[in-house]
Amino acid sequence: MSVKTLTINGKTVTGLAGTSLFNTAWEAGIRIPRLCHIGGLSDIGACRLCLVEIEGRPRLHPACMTEVEEGMVVRTESERLHAHRKLIVELLFAEGNHVCAVCVSNGHCELQDLATSLGIDHVRVAYQHPRRPVDASHARFTLDLNRCVFCRRCMRVCDEVEGAHTLDVAGRGAELRLIADLGQSWGTAESCTSCGKCVQVCPTGALFAKGSAVGEMTKNRAFLQYIVTAREKHEWIRK
């Protein structure tokens, strides 16, 4: 497989052909903000936080879905990118009902981390306070759509790793919602194996294990790397 040489933020890096800019940057120690991307699952380019500038191209490109090319000159930070990322995160806070103070994931939330790292101290767009349901019908887990950012990690891990495809989305635009099987309550979804992978990959407190109190829900994603390494490289190692 051929190797491509490119520069990211002035640093010369190399990546195998077919590798994404996001992963190549990651290997080189360059962190790009992201929400929908999670190592080990396919990418969908939905959150738009990982957009980067590529010299000679007028548009912004999602690093998670852009393959490395020879001689690319990439910038992952700029005033414009920062402004976009900030506004995207503000939009997410305003769109749902996050109410961090009373969230099971308070303090262990990727959305909060993003806000902090982007220097957000308040949300300029109007809070929408939508009425979204909470599905607590599953014996072990709860889906609180108030805190869902529609990154679809749960859907993808359920489909691509567990092979169950219990979760999916329905509706569109602001009416988008996550559903189990054919839109029934999760507890009655027969395809669900109760493996809990969706809970672990969820960046916010939208999916959590029952019995968690405020700030208690921490997520463990090590399993994903383990399974994906095993599947792709046939190596059964825990890093």
Partner: peptide, 10 residues
């Protein structure tokens, strides 16, 4: 943010 006080907006 409005926080808990704003939960009545639902």
């Amino acid at each position: 943010t409005g926080n808990v006080t704003a939960m009545r907006n639902l």
